[in-house]
Design a protein around this nucleic acid. Structure first.
Lengths: 144, 144
DNA sequence: CCTATGTCAGCACGACTGATATTC
DNA sequence: CGAATATCAGTCGTGCTGACATAG
């Protein structure tokens, strides 16, 4: 694979991602939870996380994660639980209300997205399906 | 295609997109131009555009586009040119300095991305390549 | 008179750095 | 004592709405 080909592909890829950013934002706009809030909640869906891990997984700095958690806690969607093995650490976990809000938000967003899928051909849909693992790997490769 | 399948695909797709957005931001972080600035400049690379079209293409509101253009103009990267057919309209065009800055920024970003491509197999790379047109179409479908 | 275009003012969100506790 | 964890304070970038002037 030549360098020039890769450079061109990189340009196209960055371009569609840039546009996708605005698309994601517009999908999220009509819900009660912002994009960042939904991201954070999604991260906590499987298991409670400490602040530093939330930051790491989200690709943001620790103070930014603290801020997100504070907002979500104020809204009653998560709660801070002190670690019993390390007094410096705060575990953040979803509340029942948080899980409900997250489920509702995800459903709304996925429905909107799924509806847009209907404007694609079966082949086009399949091409996206096939690319997802590769994009996932690429995201990993580009995460510090 | 069942609705449930599409909902699941939508969830996966939104998930990788969300992560990709942070990746894009981190790639853009080491350059002189911000993501939004590069977007705007890229839009002007082919031909001058009026403010309202910049806004429309970028998926933002007119006042936000005005603000971006003002910043870029202050930096000497673009210039406002009054339309000679409609006195309400302002055409925005790249300056030489703007084109140079854009080329440099794109090159840096594409190089970083192309380097990450090397961690993918040829198949994985191909899957991304094939998905780009579909994602592009999807972006269009989800743009208001 | 109504619409389109662009700008201005004021605001909200979400990231950042730098400076602190506190604990390991 | 140095490193890790979380928070606070202050700042910046970038979007938004609403109000406005000007031109079509």
């Amino acid at each position: 694979m030549s360098n020039i080909e890769n450079l061109e592909l990189a340009g196209s890829y960055r371009e569609i991602l840039r546009k996708a950013l605005y698309v994601v934002r517009s999908i999220d706009a009509d819900g009660a939870l912002s994009t960042a809030q939904t991201s954070t909640l999604n991260m906590l869906a499987a298991a409670p996380q400490r602040i530093s891990l939330i930051a790491r997984n989200a690709g943001i700095r620790v103070p930014s994660a603290t801020e997100q958690v504070t907002k979500l806690a104020t809204a009653g969607l998560v709660e801070r639980v002190p670690s019993n093995t390390d007094a410096r650490v705060v575990e953040v976990r979803l509340t029942t209300k948080g899980r409900q809000a997250l489920d509702a938000a995800n459903l709304r967003r996925n429905q909107t997205m799924a509806q847009a899928f209907e404007s694609l051909s079966a082949q086009e849909l399949e091409s996206i399906k096939l690319a997802i693992p590769a994009i996932e790997k690429l995201n990993e490769a580009l995460s510090p």
